[in-house]
Design a protein around this nucleic acid. Structure first.
Lengths: 105, 105
DNA sequence: GTCAAAGTTCGACCGATGTCGTAATATGCG
DNA sequence: CGCATATTACGACATCGGTCGAACTTTGAC
């Protein structure tokens, strides 16, 4: 088994699809993650967030965001630092991210 | 049975929720509908669109869009005229709709 | 080497949802 | 009224997807 050594796959900018992005953003837990990342340019380990789900569920959500092209994930020790792919998203869908983040909670 | 006389329920602007909107937009068929409506300010009968789904499936999608607050539907004869709730969406999530529509197909 | 911390993987469960076909329901026109 | 058109309602089906727990992997510290 390869386990955690599997390279973290990220779609290139031109591989990002709007339906995948919208689907990724349409879940409450994932939207909370995105909101948290929006205020942390340098990225964070999503495990520090209190989202009311287990670690395995959190893994599932972060992977969904990563595979959709919403976040970039880089290993750092035993942690995974996630950050918003803001420039890619703004280039592809100008206004989308700002609009989503403008929503009252 | 009430049938088609059931009043078409629409959420008020302040009842629209971002997760419902994103979920509504995240489906390929519904996104095609939204794209079509974006170029028709006065609205259209969605039945005229060739989306590759049956009429009953189309009804399901239009209802999803309506209940999410993305479109407004008004009866006109035997038809249902759907139009984008652009001012509501722009007020709630400025840039979101434009960003989504900017996506290359 | 041992141990703890952070994530991942896998399998399972279960509710949500996209799809269809069939039947029923308005609306408008003769 | 009788009929065509446009749409809806209902029921069924298959798949998707969010959730968890248990076991495993990797990394870093001691």
């Amino acid at each position: 088994m390869r386990g955690m050594t599997t390279l973290l796959a990220h779609p290139e900018r031109d591989e990002i699809r709007i339906t995948a992005v919208l689907h990724a953003l349409a879940d409450p837990v994932r939207l909370q993650i995105v909101r948290a990342l929006a205020s942390k340019e340098e990225g964070i380990s999503c495990g520090v967030l209190d989202l009311g789900v287990t670690a395995s569920t959190l893994t599932h959500h972060v992977r969904t965001l990563r595979e959709a092209g919403v976040v970039r994930v880089r290993p750092q020790g035993t942690a995974r630092i996630s950050s918003l792919r803001r420039s890619d998203l703004d280039a592809l869908y100008p206004g989308l991210l700002d609009g989503v983040l403008a929503a009252r909670q």
